[in-house]
């Protein structure tokens, strides 16, 4: 479904991604693992074209996305949930969802506001609250729900477990599994190996903007030296 081929991305003069390649198949949940600054978020932004890869290709359903404006990437069926959430704090919950709304898409699970309120019951209670009056966990749910309103085929979740309470992290894991069961393809970036293992089928480890490992969690467990070298446990 998604093929990233040899992308190099920069912030100014700093090269963040150095020829990164990976593939995501339909229906998979894949975890991008790596330390702070390894290039996980930049990878997601490079897929969304919020950061433009200088070379390489990002093929989504056999179309190269490199150079397309971000809104076109979203319209082609990729949903993006940024690390810093970026909800619209002056808008109510309902209005935040409205911004994300896109027409339904062939081959992708369809979401309605009511279905999303089933998954995230907290949001239902706060539907007329403004974004700024919500807790970190609620904001995280809102940002995911907002992206799902676009009926994406592929969901990019940047550090969904960061900065929220442990109880909510567990809920979050359940939610991701629920999304997977609906047929959604999901890529999450994580530092939390425990969380990643709970939700993902496969792990890709990034370090210094390069891929260091790509395989199942069983394989990763068989090679503790990889884990020790690239992940802070």
């Amino acid at each position: 479904m998604l093929e990233v081929e040899g992308i190099h991305s920069f912030y100014g003069k700093a090269e963040i991604l150095r020829g990164l390649s990976f593939r995501i198949a339909r229906g998979e949940v894949v975890a991008l693992l790596g330390r702070n600054g390894a290039g996980k978020s930049t990878t997601m932004k490079s897929v969304m074209q919020l950061v433009r890869p200088r070379t390489g290709r990002v093929m989504f359903q056999d179309r190269d996305l490199v150079g397309a404006p971000a809104f076109r990437v979203a319209k082609s069926g990729i949903g993006y949930v940024p690390e810093d959430r970026r909800i619209f704090t002056d808008l109510t919950v309902m209005e935040n969802l409205e911004v994300g709304r896109q027409p339904r898409r062939e081959g992708a699970p369809e979401w309605t506001v009511d279905q999303l309120f089933d998954i995230f019951p907290n949001l239902a209670e706060r539907r007329t609250n403004r974004g700024k009056h919500m807790s970190g966990g609620e904001q995280q749910m809102l940002t995911i729900a907002r992206t799902l309103m676009g009926n994406p085929m592929l969901l990019l979740l940047d550090e969904p477990s960061e900065g929220i309470a442990p109880v909510i992290v567990e809920e979050m894991a359940e939610t991701i599994l629920k999304l997977k069961s609906e047929g959604l393809t999901v890529v999450i970036s994580e530092q939390n190996l425990h969380f990643a293992r709970a939700v993902a089928d496969r792990a890709i480890i990034i370090e210094g903007g390069e891929k260091k490992f790509d395989g199942s969690f069983a394989e990763l467990e068989a090679h503790p030296e990889i884990r020790d070298a690239y992940l802070s446990v």
Binding site: P82, F88, G100
Partner: peptide, 9 residues
């Protein structure tokens, strides 16, 4: 930017 990333031109 976020509005764009949600598919709005």
């Amino acid at each position: 930017e976020m509005v764009g990333a949600l598919g709005v031109n």
